[in-house]
Each structure stands twice: as C-alpha cells, then as structure tokens.
C-alpha cells in the first residue's frame, strides 16, 4: 500500500475533510503524510494520496492547468484551484483541504454544483442576436478593440465556483444569484453583438439579483482568472439604477 519514503525526502502533512454520506454521520478530518517537492501542486498531492495512500479519497479534476475549473477546494479555509496552488507556499506548515464552502458535499472534496449550474443557465450565458443569426458566408461580426475591451475581462470565467464559496451573501442566502452569474451577465450585456440585455436585466433588478451584493469584494480576491466579479456587479448596480429610473417613466 504505502509508498516507501527515503529518509532524505522532505515530507509534508496534509489533512483532508472526508465525508461519505452513505456511511459517515458527519465529515471528519483524516491525516496524510506525503513527500514534498517545490514544484508540487495541491492537486498533485491529492493524486499522490489517491495513488499511494488511500484510493477512496474523492476529488474532481481534469486539465491540471487552471482552465477547466474542476478542482476548486478550500486550502486552509481559502477557496483555491488545486492545480494553481503550490505546496511550497505552505511548506513546512500543515495543509488542511476541505470541500468548497457554501456547497453541499457529495463525497469528500466533491461538491454538488447544481444550484450554481441552474443559475448559469438562467442568465442565458450566450449571445442573443438582434436579428436572425447571420450565416458565416456573410462574414463574421466585427468589433473594435474598444468594444472587445468592454467585456473581455468578464469572459475569462471558468465556472469553478470559488467566488460562490467566498461570498458571504451567498452563504447567508443561496437565493442570491451570485458573483460568477452576475459577472457573466455583465459580460454578455456589455457585448456589442448581444441584444439580450432587457431579458437579463429582469434577473439583475431583483432583490436577489445585483442588490443581494454588499460589495465585500472577496469574490474578486479569490478568482483564479482575474475576472473581478465585484466590479462587474457594481457596474450592473449602476445599470439597474438607470433601468429603475427609466422604468418609473415608462408604463
């Protein structure tokens, strides 16, 4: 079972929150000791544990390069991507890994993302053209660099859910539409090729829309892709206020 460690190898202690709902009453922490090298990520540490120490540890992962958004977890209480967090930033201290906060645990480090996925679907995260979509033979939709700059940053979202687990408002009330969904609304509403703003503003204008946010800003701190959802939400608050004023004079 256990891989032999040579005495010269540096080691690191990792504890993982384990929970198998069908057999465990409640989640518990399990200790592991792994060999440490400076270029190892948290995800690689988990893979080492699964391959050599305990094959029942469950976690999601796919690309290993911070683009699939699967390996989100809490590292010492901070939401991180396992593939983007390195052991060297914690060594020689112990590392505690837990499932992403604010989501129900499915098994060990795997969470149920259904609520987030439903919200993503609800906001229509795709271009809604004004007229019939034009065929490629008629050429592509042209945009100026300025038009691209207006939404580009918000299009970097990889739907990893770190911002939801950082958001204290989502923790208090998960009816709140949340940072990533709102950032994506900003991404499509600010795109010159899109004409779906009116539909999406209905979601934004709700109490649980943009107004559920109190501008804590932790979502932008933890975002692994530099999306800055907090700024997107502030922009949408201004848009929602304009929409409110216009709505007062329109039947």
């Amino acid at each position: 079972m256990s891989k032999k460690l040579t005495p010269s190898e540096k080691r690191l202690e990792i504890e993982i929150l384990r929970y198998h709902p069908e057999q465990d009453e409640e989640p518990y922490l399990q200790q592991f000791e792994i060999p440490y090298t400076t270029d190892m990520t948290i995800l690689e540490a988990l893979q080492f544990i699964k391959d050599h120490l305990d094959s029942t540890v469950s976690f999601r992962w796919s690309c290993r390069m911070a683009i699939c958004g699967s390996c989100g977890l809490m590292v010492n209480g901070v939401p991180k991507l396992g593939c983007k967090a390195f052991l060297r930033d914690y060594y020689p201290n112990k590392i505690t890994l837990e499932a992403l906060a604010n989501f129900p645990i499915e098994r060990d480090l795997v969470v149920v993302m259904d609520d987030f996925i439903n919200k993503l679907e609800e906001i229509k995260p795709y271009l809604i053209p004004e007229k019939e979509p034009q065929f490629l033979t008629k050429g592509t939709y042209q945009q100026t660099p300025e038009q691209l700059e207006k939404f580009k940053q918000y299009s970097m979202c990889i739907n990893c859910g770190l911002c939801y687990s950082a958001c204290p408002q989502y923790a208090l009330d998960n009816k709140f539409i949340g940072p990533a969904a709102l950032a994506l609304i900003a991404r499509y509403n600010r795109d010159s090729r899109d004409a779906g703003s009116a539909e999406r503003m209905k979601i934004v204008n709700q109490e649980v829309g943009v107004w559920g946010c109190t501008f804590v800003g932790y979502c932008s701190v933890v975002c692994p892709k530099g999306v800055d959802p907090a700024a997107a939400i502030q922009l949408l608050k201004v848009e929602s206020s304009k929409d409110y004023l216009i709505g007062m004079f329109k039947p």
Partner: peptide, 10 residues
C-alpha cells in the same frame, strides 16, 4: 421577476 426598490436607497 420582482423588481427591487433598492436603487433609491443605494
């Protein structure tokens, strides 16, 4: 969808 009156207070 119910519109919030928060813009006034915000």
């Amino acid at each position: 969808y119910i519109r919030s009156h928060e813009p006034v207070f915000w």
